[in-house]
């Protein structure tokens, strides 16, 4: 006997993501899902973002990794609450993991949660976590051809950060081509060139994020 189901496969994840989102909205906490390859500088970018915004906002970080507490310890050492999720082999975060992580945070005291997704350009794209924005980082040494190889992540990102911009002269990275491919895949996403460890270019990115946080706070 054939039965029609016609239901999204990630129904359960999507439902839990909606619950997360409802909580974030109720508490007025802006949630950013940051995605990139391993080594692109996700943690450095988070630290630079914290430095740019910590005077204005209360920030917490959720760290997703297959194993270890290395990243959460780096963030905690910066005086910011950090929750480490170890996915135990899974290549992306799912909304139930986020649900458990936020239980460990004081949601009433926060303005911004940055989720560092597992280093991967493919899998995190399909899993809604309840975040307000997905943003991706590509670092210069990875090469300007990555949007050709991993178009999906560039299409769903609301902003693209080009990190390690200070190494541009050392690598054969064609910035013009990179920007043009990103625009053709996603005409709305701004590209922010930064050098996270030096703090360069972070202001424009922090301003974009501030606008989004303020839009949430003012209810628009």
């Amino acid at each position: 006997m054939e039965i029609d189901i016609k239901k999204p496969i990630l129904d359960r994840n999507d439902r839990l993501a909606q619950d997360n989102r409802a909580l974030f909205d109720e508490k007025g906490v802006f949630v950013l899902d940051l995605m990139a390859s391993p080594g692109a500088g996700k943690t450095s970018t988070i630290l630079a973002t914290i430095d740019a915004l910590r005077d204005r906002y209360n920030i917490a970080v959720i760290e997703g990794d297959i194993a270890s507490k290395v990243d959460a310890e780096k963030i905690s050492a910066h005086g910011i609450p950090a929750v480490q999720i170890n996915t135990g082999g899974a290549c992306h975060l799912e909304s139930d993991m986020i649900q458990r992580a936020i239980a460990a945070l004081d949601m009433d005291a926060l303005d911004l949660i940055i989720i560092e997704n597992v280093g991967n350009l493919v899998c995190p794209t399909e899993f809604n976590l309840g975040e307000h924005a997905k943003v991706m980082i590509l670092s210069v040494p990875e090469g300007h051809d990555k949007p050709y190889k991993y178009p999906n992540i560039f299409q769903i990102a609301e902003a693209v950060i080009l990190n390690k911009y200070d190494t541009l002269s050392v690598f054969d990275f064609n910035e013009e081509e990179f920007r043009s491919v990103v625009t053709s895949l996603n005409h709305e996403a701004p590209v922010f060139a930064i050098s996270a460890t030096k703090g360069e270019g972070v202001d424009a990115w922090a301003e974009w994020l501030t606008d989004r946080i303020e839009a949430l706070k003012s209810g628009s």
């Binding site: 039965i3 239901k7 496969i9 999906n152 053709s184 895949l185």
Partner: peptide, 30 residues
């Protein structure tokens, strides 16, 4: 997967209407 440009007018501001499906359609059971 890459080039999303209107073949009629060359515009690249387009709305994705198919290609991101992830749906369970039906099952056959006894």
């Amino acid at each position: 997967r890459f080039e999303i440009v209107c073949p009629n007018c060359g515009n690249f501001v387009c709305e994705q209407i198919k290609g991101r499906e992830l749906t369970i359609d039906s099952i056959d059971i006894d």
